[in-house]
Amino acid sequence: MADAGTSGEARAEGGDVGGPLLDVRAVGVTVGGVRAVEHATLSLREGAFASLIGPNGAGKTSLLHAISGFYRPSAGEIHFGGRRIDGWPPHRVAASGLVRTFQRGRVFARLSCLDNMRLGARDHPGEQFVANLARPRARRRREAEVTSEARELLAAVGLGPKADDLAGTLSGGQRKLLEFARALMCRPKLVLLDEPMAGVNPTTGRQVMERIAQLHAAHSLTVFFVEHQLDVVMAMSDHVVVMAEGRVIKSGPPEEVRSDQAVHDAYLGSRRRREAVGRRGDEALAARAPGRDEAGLR
């Protein structure tokens, strides 16, 4: 259970040498005519345990969609491990070691939990049409490997007894756990987690976060998670990015973020927020208003 990737150790030594692992430069995202993210810039060093916070509708999920390839950014560049990844399809981003989970916990409902987990594995010859038929031994060997790994990870998130149940029968919180465990199956370099604790009971939620922290420590897994519970965020992460109204308004270590006035304002009423954003020289807010109304009509 402790060993989710031996290659992780090797990577750890190379950490912190090159540039940042993830580099988001001036990215804009437009969703259904709404500019959900504007000019977002942030970077994560390898091995970071970073969080992304911001009020509802700040654009956190949209930014995650853009990083993971589901939305094509309307502006800016995204670099991961030194390669430019914006414009890549999602499966290519995932295969390059950047895996994400979804806010509402998306699992393969009509497959067993174990199958869900196996699907997370990389480099399975059985998933290639020709190799599946032509190399039965390789397929079986990898399948056995993948299965034992899957069982270990399932047990680690407390879903061991559910291995043979259909994932569609899981509760919302269990789905999020399953999805998270599935993301780990491919031994990612970076995981983007969209509210891993939301909908999970507080105790389990904390256990999940602890589990994530363990993996992070053991294998230099880089973690970037969206979370609304500020106490958890401040206690666990070493780097906090704050978004409001589609923009990154602050990023830095938790102490610094905690004492930032603009961040406080972003979490308060709209009048204060407008002033705060205005202070930062952001007049784009007014220009965005009509776009939102349009979205409201639809």
């Binding site: 993971s68 390839g69 589901f70 399809p89 999602p90 499966h91 290519r92 995932a94 295969a95 895996v99 994400r100 989970t101 979804f102 998306r106 699992v107 393969f108 409902a109 009509r110 497959l111 199958d115 869900n116 196996r118 699907l119 997370g120 990389r122 399975h124 059985g126 998933e127 290639q128 049409f129 599946n132 397929r139 399948e143 569609g168 999805e179 599935r182 993301a183 199956m185 491919c186």
Partner: peptide, 26 residues
């Protein structure tokens, strides 16, 4: 029931999640 077919079923259940696990859905 081969791993290839498992990917097909994953695509059936949730195409986006399948892409997020690195499967080339297309």
């Amino acid at each position: 029931r081969s791993p290839w077919g498992r990917v097909l079923q994953a695509i059936r259940d949730d195409e986006d999640a399948a892409a997020a696990t690195g499967k080339n859905v297309f």
